[in-house]
């Protein structure tokens, strides 16, 4: 017995080669996971801070129901996103939404429908009273914007995504620019000069020349934001916004998971969404199978869907008055 003791200790102190291999693999796996975690850390932070935002849609006054969180569509089912674009330049305590686009995505058929809502559309707000629809976000954030659109357009909104102007510039620059067809010269002597600091209410001149071209973020923003010399005014701008959105989507179809940290870092502070990462993945799936033929674009042009008005009834403001019977026929058909 005494002779077996030291031998057993020697065996115990000497690691078996298999154990060494397993230990080595475990350590490498651990360090590899740590490396991957470090790489995707910005995505995780953004996932917590910017995606999956809980929005409580206020109840309709007439309904008198309690506030409810937005119910989400089942995975794989068609869903509707309200895209909000704001001039986050500090003019207002909360920004107005210069762009509101309803997007219905059908992941199964890879069909996308986009409907631009004119920012000057005169509607009852969910927060009370009537005003231009761009004020809804100003008064009550995403929840008020969603509730206002839902009640007036009789649609159900599953998700929202908000992006600031600077976020749009940075995103397009990060994507290396977008290819766009500028159909006619876009000239504007009253373009807001509010992006790079200075006097917030100053203005500048811009000129986007016609033809196919590659636009960086700043010039793409000028293209989608200009409206003063467009005979279609805000409607012309809406059409241009949809055009650039499709160009961004075309570019996004080439992205992969390794690009996410850069994209997230780019949008930091300029983007929030109610969508969780699973819904974002679903959207990327549609973007990958992107086909322009599967995209339906709707702009509520004058005179069919809307008309211009100005007067005491609108506080003396120049507004766009909705023709609800025509608009609701469109939303019923395209946003069931």
């Amino acid at each position: 017995m005494t002779g077996q003791g030291p031998a057993r200790r020697r065996r115990a102190s000497r690691l078996h080669p298999v154990r060494i291999a397993v230990l080595t693999l475990f350590c490498l796996l651990l360090s590899g996971t740590a490396g991957a975690a470090a790489y995707f850390f910005p995505v995780v932070v953004a996932g917590v801070g910017q995606t999956g935002q809980t929005v409580v849609v206020p109840p309709s006054r007439s309904q008198g129901t309690a506030s409810t969180p937005m119910p989400s569509a089942a995975p794989g089912a068609p869903f509707t996103v309200l895209l909000l674009g704001s001039d986050d330049d500090g003019k207002n305590k909360s920004p107005l939404t210069q762009s509101m686009i309803l997007v219905r995505v059908d992941p199964a058929s890879k069909h996308v429908t986009m409907l631009s809502i004119p920012r000057d559309l005169w509607v009852p707000l969910s927060t009370g009273g009537s005003a231009k629809i761009d004020a809804a976000y100003d008064y009550g954030g995403a929840a008020a914007a969603i509730a206002t659109v839902e009640r007036n357009f009789h649609v159900h909104i599953d998700e929202y995504a908000w992006v600031g102007l600077k976020g749009l510039i940075k995103l397009i620059d990060r994507l290396g620019g977008v290819d766009v067809l500028v159909s006619n010269p876009v000239l504007d002597d009253e373009y807001p000069n509010d992006i790079n600091g200075g006097f917030l209410y100053g203005y500048m001149r811009i000129a986007a020349l016609p033809g196919f071209q590659h636009l960086d973020g700043t010039h793409a923003l000028q293209y989608v934001r200009s409206r003063h010399n467009d005979i279609n005014g805000d409607f012309g701008r809406s059409a241009r916004q949809q055009q650039v959105l499709l160009a961004i989507k075309a570019k996004a179809s080439t992205l992969n998971a390794a690009d996410l940290p850069d994209i997230v870092e780019t949008l930091k502070g300029n983007f929030t969404t109610s969508m969780g990462l699973d819904r974002v993945r679903s959207l990327l799936g549609v973007a990958t199978a992107f086909d322009l033929a599967n995209v339906k674009q709707i702009v509520l042009f004058v005179p069919t869907y809307t008309s211009y008005d100005r007067g005491a009834a609108y506080g003396g403001q120049s507004v766009v008055v909705p023709h609800w019977s025509q608009i609701l026929a469109v939303t019923r058909a395209n946003f069931p």
Partner: peptide, 24 residues
């Protein structure tokens, strides 16, 4: 083995960076 682990972790980090799409 600690430096090996550090090197491997950094390698994974750098390798993921090379997988970015050409567009970016």
């Amino acid at each position: 083995f600690v430096p090996v682990m550090l090197a491997f972790g950094s390698g994974v980090y750098l390798y993921l960076g090379t997988l970015k799409s050409k567009v970016v």
